[in-house]
């Protein structure tokens, strides 16, 4: 069980400006600005649940994960994971924890993964039996058994990520933090990792928090979603609900044979934002207004190839983030 109450995190960064003059200036005095990474975060995740953490770069996802895993401290508020205060970094807690960062490897670059696993076995004091069983199972699942004895630097990105996953799960962690596990991977590898995580969840029932830029990861894995913007959680709830909230928006696409400047004015009057690529125009319209907009369009402009469709999850989130910003 993860419980986070009114968590905030601020830190100071020195400002650095370009130019030789400013370099000389910083000789004398360094200036700092206080940045807020997290603001009043409240969160509860229970066993067997997988929470998708979504937000743009710098929204505070990684900071939150780092606080939960005890790497960095919080400024105010309380955090409890499995009844532990992560920041105390008790061994008992760290033995139950696993952190996977898609951008940072924990395996030893010049060595085969199998060697690193033996080291992890020692670190987590996994008994021989359990170690063998887990290794067998994980490498079977992920299909990387043959690459176990290849130096990690010679593996492809996808294989390496799979190896990282194995490394992170060898000790049967009860809390798993996955920070962008599919970053930079091709579609097939992404899919394989998603499938694996799904099965792993069913079988082991850990607490899992997943951050990702790929909406598909979230859509397939996380029934529950937390949206972050500028250090705040602006939405926390079922994925479906957010979909429904914008479910009645349709995306309307059509072709227009020549550019018309008054088209923009037309939409502007109706309070809609259009996007334009060459002569294809797309615009998002609420379902209640759709007929009216189409009628007016046909009356005023010569257009062809009209399509309407449901918006995808990316657009939903995007519009949610910008929608909240306005209000």
């Amino acid at each position: 069980m993860i419980k986070v109450n009114n968590l905030s995190k601020t830190f100071k960064v020195p400002t650095k400006q370009a130019g030789l003059k400013n370099a000389f200036k910083s000789l004398i005095k360094k200036e700092y600005i206080t940045k807020t990474a997290l603001k009043d975060v409240n969160l509860k995740v229970s066993k067997g649940e997988i929470l998708g953490l979504v937000g743009s770069n710098g929204a505070g996802k990684t900071t939150l994960v780092k606080i939960l895993s005890g790497i960095i401290s919080s400024s105010t508020g309380s955090v409890s994971v499995l009844g532990f205060d992560p920041w105390k970094r008790k061994n008992a807690y760290r033995e139950k924890l696993s952190l996977i960062m898609g951008q940072k490897a924990q395996l030893w670059w010049d060595l085969p993964a199998a060697d690193s696993y033996l080291l992890l076995k020692e670190i987590y004091q996994i008994e021989d039996q359990r170690f063998k069983k887990n290794l067998q199972k994980l490498t079977d699942y992920l299909g990387v058994k043959d690459q176990l004895n290849v130096p990690v630097r010679k593996l492809s990105l996808g294989e390496r990520m799979k190896m990282e996953l194995v490394a992170a799960l060898l000790h049967d962690p009860q809390v798993i933090f996955l920070d962008e596990p599919t970053i930079g991977l091709d579609i097939i590898s992404q899919k394989a990792i998603r499938e694996f995580l799904k099965e792993y969840m069913i079988e082991h029932n850990p607490i899992m928090i997943l951050t990702s830029h790929y909406m598909q990861d979230i859509e397939e894995l996380c029934p529950r979603l937390a949206l972050m913007r500028a250090g705040e959680i602006i939405y926390d709830g079922p994925l479906n609900e957010i979909k429904n909230k914008f479910g009645d928006v349709r995306s309307l696409k059509f072709d227009i044979d020549h550019q018309r400047s008054d088209l923009e004015d037309f939409f502007l009057k109706k309070n809609l934002k259009m996007q334009c690529t060459q002569n294809q125009v797309s615009v998002k319209v609420h379902i209640d207004k759709l007929t009216e907009v189409m009628k007016d369009l046909l009356n005023n402009f010569t257009i062809s190839n009209i399509q309407t469709s449901q918006v995808d999850i990316d657009t939903v989130i995007e519009s949610y983030l910008s929608y909240e910003k306005k209000s």
Binding site: S69, G70, I71, E95, L97, L99, K104, I123, Y124
Partner: peptide, 11 residues
């Protein structure tokens, strides 16, 4: 940031 991983290990 290599330190991150080692901070999460029970060693």
């Amino acid at each position: 940031g290599e330190l991150d991983y080692y901070l999460t290990k029970p060693v």
